[in-house]
């Protein structure tokens, strides 16, 4: 008989390990990745590969340089690469995803201690860095989907749906706008909100970042993660719910004249709510905290979309909320069994 192993209880463990969690997320991203290639061509695939390889290589090099165990096989760097690519316009030059991935890993992840210790979502930090450094590529390198237009409408072919919304809204809330402009803006909005446009948004037949456009493909992946219990409903539901409520309240002329369905389906909201706001490392651990976090993301996203300078605000909202996570966790601790007192 071999010597007996001794060790602390429990002596049996669930099978799921870090790698299992990470590769489940990778699997969940596959439908949207295929969608990205379908809509935006082989270029989208190259960008995904470049970002992923760069992220993995950067992690290996950083760990080698600091004489730490090389953990690239855990799959977390791969996720960062894919998510970064998902958040880039399809027309960016090929060096851009590489620079973004290097920043995501070498600046936003490794210096903080690597997996588990990074305060910001690395992929979003990479995207924010690129947006600040090369704004033209990041806000203009759109390409129309293979079978549709950039905006998902016929009248306009030069902006994404949220871009059109931004322009129309700015005209409508500008007191000096002429009657002509006003009526044009209103007709744009009417077309954006039409069922044909919403259908394009749902299936992904519009312009946007590589992995964000197809709501249905993202939801298929999200359903897999929910069923597997890798993510829970709290963050996505509170996030999307808040955006829906606030855009309905504030997104139109006067209170409660907005069109929430358009806001929920457009931009990076579904991608962000299910795949980035739910990033375990950078979101709260407590059940209540997750709801608070989701509501916070939802408020910020709506504020940026309706009142900010950018047409889209998902990335920045999540990054800002990432910073508040330790605070949220501290104030949303569950009431212990038998703890006396309120809440």
């Amino acid at each position: 008989m071999s010597p007996l192993a001794v060790g602390p209880s429990p002596h049996i463990r669930q099978d799921l390990n870090i790698r299992g969690v990470m590769y489940a997320v990778v699997i969940a991203l596959i439908p949207a990745a295929i969608g990205g290639v379908y809509f935006f061509g082989i270029r989208a695939l190259f960008i995904m590969i470049l970002a992923s390889v760069a992220a993995i290589a950067t992690e290996a090099i950083c760990q080698k340089a600091t004489r730490r165990a090389i953990t690239i096989s855990d799959g977390s760097a791969l996720i960062t690469g894919i998510l970064l690519a998902f958040n880039l316009p399809p027309g960016v030059p090929y060096w851009l995803p590489i620079v973004g991935a290097v920043f995501a890993i070498a600046i936003a992840k490794i210096p903080f201690g690597g997996l588990g210790y990074n305060p910001l979502n690395p992929a979003l930090a990479g995207r924010a860095f690129l947006l600040a450094s090369w704004p033209v590529y990041m806000t203009a390198a759109w390409t129309a989907p293979s079978r549709g237009t950039l905006s998902g409408m016929n009248a306009i072919t030069t902006a994404t749906p949220l871009g059109v919304f931004k322009v129309a809204r700015q005209i409508l809330i500008n007191p000096g706008a002429g009657a002509d402009e006003m009526s044009r803006a209103n007709s744009y909005l009417a077309e954006l909100y039409s069922s044909a446009s919403l259908k394009n948004l749902f299936f992904g037949n519009v312009g946007g970042c590589i992995g964000e456009t197809s709501v249905i493909l993202l939801l298929i992946g999200a359903a897999y993660l929910l069923i597997r219990g890798i993510i829970c409903w709290r963050i996505p539901v509170s996030y999307i719910g808040t955006v829906a409520l606030l855009t309905w309240m504030l997104g139109g002329k006067g209170l409660f004249h907005g069109y929430p369905l358009f806001h929920v389906l457009s931009g990076g909201l579904v991608l962000g709510a299910f795949f980035m706001a739910t990033d375990m490392v950078t979101s709260p651990v407590t059940p209540k905290g997750k709801i608070v976090f989701g509501i916070g993301c939802g408020i910020l996203t709506t504020v940026i979309r309706l009142y900010g300078g950018y047409p889209e605000g998902v990335s920045y909202s999540i990054l800002i909320m990432n910073i508040t996570v330790p605070l949220i966790d501290r104030y949303t601790r569950p009431r212990k069994l038998g703890e006396v007192g309120s809440s």
């Binding site: 870090i18 829970c232 490392v281 651990v285 407590t286 059940p287 009431r335 069994l337």
Partner: peptide, 22 residues
Amino acid sequence: LEEPGPCLRCGACVDHCPMRLV
């Protein structure tokens, strides 16, 4: 016998703790 890795902050322990600790 898998070696412990870094906490992913997945919150599974918080969700399942019967004493509702963190």
